[in-house]
């Protein structure tokens, strides 16, 4: 019998615990991708994560790295304060759309504009998950949420905010890419983007943000499989995937 080789297993960067995320919620995939990248780049022992308020508020229970728990929307400011004093450490914020694009909009824009050398993993599932399905800044036109039960009326609440496009308008160099994790081939591409983001940080090159379209079966009122298709047919069309900015200027 030849030896048994393992080609896929739980990364060391993830703690061996069952997460609180709902069945089929792709937060779990994104956590795993970040953990795998930190392990592969060999930086996990000198990494600091900053958890937001939202579904991933308990992220610090799942990663094998030191963590800070940030007030709602303020993770980029915590990361700024930490990174400026410990530029030798790898710092990332992990934030949802309510956290980053609503209450934390000022913090993320100014951190990006200062070119803070940390990485942001921005999970966009177009809804407030932890608090039970309210409308988020990225909720799609007509999408039903508990605070827009008749479907989002963009006449009253404005259009969903495209963060990568918004941030790419800043002049300061940065790496911005939008990816998705609803099908395996998307997950593979998402991992490449996350690795590229952390690589820029290791090279102390620029601010890096990866926007990851994610699912919320519970609050979308869909099964996990239906949710992945909803991303493919609706979320992805309003939030086109792709590289929006790189420090080299090339796409």
């Amino acid at each position: 019998m030849q030896s048994l080789t393992t080609t896929f297993t739980r990364p060391e960067g993830l703690q061996d615990v069952v997460t609180h995320y709902c069945p089929g919620c792709t937060h779990g995939i994104i956590h795993r991708l970040v953990a795998e990248v930190l392990d592969e780049l060999g930086v996990r022992e000198r990494t600091l994560g900053v958890a937001p308020v939202g579904c991933s508020v308990l992220a610090y229970n799942y990663f094998n790295t030191d963590f800070l728990e940030s007030p709602h929307g303020r993770a980029p400011a915590l990361a700024t304060g930490f990174k400026r004093l410990r530029p030798d450490m790898i710092v990332f914020t992990y934030q949802g759309d309510g956290d980053l694009a609503s209450i934390g909009m000022s913090e993320i824009i100014h951190a990006a504009n200062r070119g803070e050398k940390f990485t942001t993993i921005f999970v966009n599932n177009a809804i407030y998950g932890m608090t039970g399905g309210q409308m988020a800044p990225t909720t799609l036109a007509g999408q039903v949420a508990t605070t827009c039960p008749m479907g989002r009326d963009t006449g009253k609440t404005g259009m969903p905010i495209r963060m990568c496009e918004l941030l790419s308008g800043l002049v300061t160099p940065a790496y911005l890419e939008r990816v998705a994790v609803h099908f395996p081939q998307q997950i593979i591409k998402a991992k490449k983007a996350i690795r590229r983001a952390f690589q820029y940080q290791i090279e102390n090159k620029c601010f890096s943000l990866v926007e990851v379209l994610s699912t919320c079966p519970t609050n979308w009122g869909k099964t996990p499989a239906e949710s992945t298709h909803w991303v493919e047919e609706n979320l992805k069309s309003y939030f086109p995937l792709g590289v929006y900015k790189t420090p080299e200027g090339a796409k």
């Binding site: 030849q2 030896s3 048994l4 080789t5 080609t7 896929f8 937060h27 779990g28």
Partner: peptide
């Protein structure tokens, strides 16, 4: 041994292993 199940699992509940040589269709 294509690993697609493990890659799409949100809870890292799936381990993939094999004996001997395996041709991996893509790098991950």
């Amino acid at each position: 041994g294509c690993r697609l199940c493990a890659i799409t699992c949100p809870d890292a509940a799936i381990m993939v292993n094999h004996h001997g040589q395996l041709y991996l269709l893509y790098d991950y």
